[in-house]
Nucleic acid binder design. Structure first.
Lengths: 336, 336
DNA sequence: CTGAAAGCGCTTACAG
DNA sequence: CTGAAAGCGCTTACAG
């Protein structure tokens, strides 16, 4: 650890050569600048001896590159996002980048604030799972040439650099399995807020019903809050079972499925029936419920990896890329 | 968003006053420097008009403060750590700080690397859940005056600035409940690696047994890896049940408890018995198992909050603090 | 009350 | 091949 803070100037004095020379050598530009091998040797040795470490703040100020990227998600403590964070971290490390993170809680104001804060802090790029109100801000930034990658969701087909799951076909596959398994009246419990994810998963549900000529019944489609929704889910699931005679439920995601699944487990026990469920994403705890289920598991690690790689390409590109990567969710069928 | 990058010099030119004056005003030192109210007014107005944002890289270079702290944990995708990360983030935001994070995977080499990387990047302080080999490195850094807070575990009573759970008394309470509930042969499944956490939880187990004059039987204490340990846990739990006639098991943590609990649930079903378990930490999924349990839940959010506050105090202090904060885990008794 | 100047530690044209 | 110098955008003694 260099507590002494050796600078280029220190080495320069020690060696009696100019700072520029040392800088070139330390940055691997010796060849390019045709520095003599002997000099390179001498400089590297001395630098190592003195424990020289370039000051990143000075480099950043001079070059305008901080080697730091920002990650903004709804909530880093949510395991979906923390897994993404981990894979982004791993990929960032590969490229010599660091990651600062922020949680927006899906709150427009906070999200905007974070974007601006991170931007002003001179991050080299941003990976973000945007809140609804971020659209204009993000597009303005992108148009100004700032590297951004949207993950998990986006606003319309107009945005650039998107990495998402196959929400439509994934949920289509889930519902199709439920149907093939003999279910004819499949409820849907989804989020009340609008987003590309919400929209596409709904479309997948509709598509499957249509294909098998089942009725699209809005009475058995329920919208709940995206946070602290345990009570809502319980109420809705009970209502669907007791008053609407559904034979299966498709849940928007795994946490909702686990919450609703608890109710269904109790119902199955007391009724002797064996209702199953479907949901997007899975969890090792879903199987703890012991009820039949089918889920489409996102490749979360890949989502992080792919988005970080795309961001790196955007950072190193002079032109605005326009990529959309759709990652296929893997189907797990435990309907039995 | 200021895409144009206005600098102090720009405002200075525009207004015909010196940069220093503007700097003072922007940093709220107007009063201290006795700048005239009219001037303050004029400068603030112009700065706002031009969309001035101080360049953090320049500030950092000049002042040596980056307003960024580092967070190093075993794995940010582990929900225990991601919850801590979130509460640290929230507290950091309060103080105008950003957080960069890194996952060490409990790997000494990686952890050292991360510490050095973050240190060299000029973070203002570090919150770390250390790996075994970090001891010397961390103490050296602390002695050199670098602000560090250890969370979750530490090495000996010699380290400074520690925030941990009451591991000993927490696990003592858990085992005591198990005993009071009528259990006399309580197995223990713990981690194979040594750390303060492992040590203290074991001591709590021993203390409770002693107090109630139960035998400390090393045959029913099992050590497993701290990662990918599903198979080991399964094997050990089965062995404890089948060959050692235990009537309860105390698990080192919640994830291990859930894994082992699955086996116990099956056993309970087939045997008609109703074995219960104990464990440190809980999870909303533990109850999904439907077996009796008692757990001591750490105040994870508080852990992050307290550690960040302590770090802030250390950053703003000229002398080395030496605080140890022990957070009490809350007991949840579902033994029935 | 206000201005001119140094300096944080780099990188990179510009000269030679 | 190598050196001297400018400049990134700040903050902060130092003068007046």
């Amino acid at each position: 650890m260099g507590f002494k803070k050796v600078s280029l100037k220190d080495i320069s004095k020690e060696l009696g050569v100019s700072q520029s020379l040392i800088s070139f050598v330390m940055n691997g530009k010796a060849k390019e600048m045709r520095v003599s091998d002997a000099m390179v040797e001498k400089i590297l040795k001395k630098a190592d001896e003195m424990g020289y470490k370039a000051n990143p703040m000075a480099q950043a100020l001079r070059t305008g590159k901080s080697n730091t990227i920002g990650l903004i998600v709804a909530d880093i403590s949510n395991s979906f996002y923390s897994k993404i964070a981990r894979s982004i971290e791993d990929e960032a490390t590969e490229h010599g980048y660091h990651v600062i993170f922020g949680s927006s809680d899906e709150n427009d104001k906070r999200s905007t604030e974070l974007i601006n804060l991170f931007y002003d802090k001179k991050i080299d790029g941003l990976i973000i799972s945007p809140a609804k109100g971020d659209r204009d801000n993000l597009m303005k930034l992108q148009n100004s040439g700032f590297p951004i990658v949207l993950i998990d969701r986006y606003f319309s087909e107009n945005e650039s650099n998107i990495v998402v799951a196959n929400n439509l076909s994934g949920s289509y596959e889930i519902v199709k399995r439920l149907i093939k398994n003999g279910n004819k009246k499949i409820g849907y419990i989804t989020h009340g807020t609008d987003s590309s994810v919400v929209r596409y998963r709904y479309q997948g549900y509709v598509k499957a019903l249509k294909e098998f000529e089942l009725e699209l019944n809005h009475q058995i489609i329920r919208k709940v809050s995206h946070i602290n929704n345990e009570q809502e889910i319980e109420t809705n699931v009970k209502d669907l079972i007791e008053n609407h005679d559904i034979d299966s439920i498709f849940f928007f995601n795994n946490t909702m499925a686990i919450e609703g699944g608890k109710i269904i487990r109790e119902y199955n026990k007391s009724s002797g029936r064996n209702l199953g469920i479907g949901c997007f994403d899975s969890s090792r705890y879903l199987e703890l419920l012991g009820i039949p289920y089918v889920s489409a598991v996102q490749q979360v690690e890949k989502l992080g990896e792919v988005s970080m790689r795309l961001l790196m390409r955007q950072i190193n590109s002079t032109s605005q890329l326009n990529e959309k990567k759709v990652l296929t969710a893997r189907l797990i069928d435990k309907l039995g």
